[in-house]
Write a protein that binds this DNA or RNA. Structure first.
Lengths: 240, 240
DNA sequence: CGCAAACTTTGATCTGGATCAAATCGCGAT
DNA sequence: ATCGCGATTTGATCCAGATCAAAGTTTGCG
């Protein structure tokens, strides 16, 4: 667990990286073993509790992270306190905004999480030296852009019920344990956070959840645990 | 106007490119003169009328374009006809989705426009050969991502009046003719399109526009022409 | 010129989701 | 156990924005 001094194995991969969730992710998956060693030497694993802020909106962007475990939410806050979640990131996503000094959003652990933090300067240098890395990050940015635009459709044009169904579908799609026809997962978000993601209030979220439960589309255990007996049924509710 | 055969000038720049709006844009601004010549040889200027579809949602992504003049809207459509505009692009932006075969959105000229179309294969090859181009497109993607997330906040958390003010601010910010304290511009969008961008109905858009007019924040001439006497006033309405 | 079609505004009414207000649940601390 | 507190659900009411309906306004065309 405590592998601060990174030792080089036969293949030249730091031990801390060997079993890492993000080892084959957007960043580390395309680095040479030398670069990985270099990055490993300057990076720090960190456990963060749910609710812990990783990047503050308006702060200087001085480091980046990889998510090794858990879910991170990206939030935008208005001066009067209104809040909107603008993205969710799952292991092994990369978190950070290259090429810009100040962050326009905050990143906060939605669940207990583990992240691997490394200095901005180092990665920026590697990006400029490694076309593969540039390409990989470009690719993630485009995927996030697609996701953001998909969510714009949800925010602008779907009803409350469709919004909640869309969120459940998003989570189900990005959480792991799945069987052929039935899916179960733990919600990484509280009702308040779901509301902030969907542009609704907690009460409306709660009502729509019980509506979906009563109509048999989902089962709910202990508030956070969701079972989707028939995924197609859930998809039909989204009508897209 | 008709420069199909691209001749090489002393500096090696195709004549068609010399006075092009997009000459120093995201793509062409970072190409070598040899590459520019190559791209010029395989590209085609095209005039498109307002309303003309440039890319169809679900179609294969077989070419890209640069916007030389005019405004292009990016739309998402649901099977039942509900529609959401998920982005506006202005000259000299690049239009297209690298690295993916099928388009998840449609691109349509919002105003009469001129675009420069070139084959996907050629640019994809140049991207892989030219780190500067990769970087430039990565940068545009990240800017679009920031814009999309900003708009998510608008869609999810702002009131109808704030939404309309946000749109006017966005247009004012991206249209050119400005003086120090007063700004005037033509709306590139109809009321129906504004509604599809803001997740509202035409009637609500119209009412909020007259509200802003009556409160003196804007003046409206001929439906499309907007004058903002005091930009700070408009910004205050957005409360961000 | 005059008329049709498309776009925009304005008015009247309705409703989905917000707001206000209690219960109820689950869980950690005493 | 049971107390207390935050999270969630449920209920009653309200209201911003949708929907339904009608008038303008502009533009192009015979």
């Amino acid at each position: 667990m405590d592998v601060a001094h990174s030792e080089v194995l036969e293949v030249g991969i730091p031990v801390a990286c060997r079993s890492c969730q993000a080892r084959h992710g957007v960043v580390c998956g395309v680095l040479s073993s030398g670069q990985l060693k270099d990055l490993g030497r300057h990076s720090l694993r960190r456990k963060v509790d749910a609710g812990c802020e990783i990047i503050a909106q308006g702060s200087e962007n001085s480091f980046y992270s990889n998510i090794m475990r858990g879910v991170v939410k990206l939030c935008k806050m208005m001066p009067d306190g209104r809040q909107q979640i603008v993205g969710l990131q799952f292991a092994p996503d990369f978190v950070g905004r290259p090429f810009v000094r100040e962050s326009t959003l905050s990143a906060e652990a939605a669940t207990d999480a583990e992240i691997c933090v490394f200095p901005r300067n180092l990665l920026d240098r590697m990006i400029s030296e490694t076309p593969e890395l540039q390409r990989s990050l470009h690719d993630q940015a485009l995927k996030e852009l697609d996701a953001a635009r998909e969510w714009m459709l949800t925010l602008g044009r779907r009803t409350a019920e469709e919004k909640v169904a869309s969120l459940l579908h998003l989570i189900a799609t990005h959480a792991e344990p799945q069987t052929a026809t039935s899916t179960a997962f733990d919600l990484p978000l509280s009702r308040a956070e779901i509301a902030d993601f969907l542009g609704l209030t907690i009460e409306t979220v709660s009502r729509q959840m019980t509506r979906l439960r009563k109509s048999g589309v989902i089962r709910i255990e202990n508030f956070r645990h969701i079972i989707v007996p028939d995924m197609d049924e859930l998809e039909r509710m989204i009508s897209a």
